[in-house]
């Protein structure tokens, strides 16, 4: 019985890791590659959202609204930002995938992880 539990646990972990890697891969292809091409400062955008919403939940919700309906009113970026960078096209991802991509984005640029105490 114990062996079965261990094997099942191992398999589920393997599946999760695979899914996570697939998710990560998809996020980088869908979002980051384009951002890098257009030289969009992703870290800066993250900090701006963080400064306004404080929590991941708040940021995710604000980003989700903007992604579903990309327009100046739904963005927190200043007007001059859109002079330099084109307004984003409406995304074709379904809601669930979009939320997963946003969460991956927040995870990728989370600056709170960098916080540490001086040794």
């Amino acid at each position: 019985m114990g062996k079965i539990v261990v094997i099942l646990g191992f398999l589920s972990r393997l599946l999760y890791a695979e899914e996570s890697t697939t998710q990560d891969h998809s996020f980088k292809n869908t979002c980051i590659s384009c951002h890098q091409q257009q030289q969009i400062p992703s870290a800066l955008i993250y900090k701006r959202y963080l400064m306004k919403y404080s929590t991941d939940r708040g940021m995710e919700e604000a980003m989700f609204i903007y992604m579903k309906d990309p327009k100046k009113e739904n963005s927190i970026m200043p007007a001059p930002f859109f002079l330099k960078f084109p307004m984003k096209e409406k995304i074709s991802l379904d809601d669930s995938s979009l939320r997963k991509h946003i969460q991956a984005y927040l995870e990728e640029f989370d600056i709170k992880k960098k916080l540490m105490l001086e040794k």
């Binding site: 960098k114 916080l115 540490m116 001086e118």
Partner: peptide, 10 residues
């Protein structure tokens, strides 16, 4: 918050 360093010393 404005720093781009890899480590942020609290």
């Amino acid at each position: 918050h404005q720093s781009n360093d890899a480590k942020l010393i609290y």
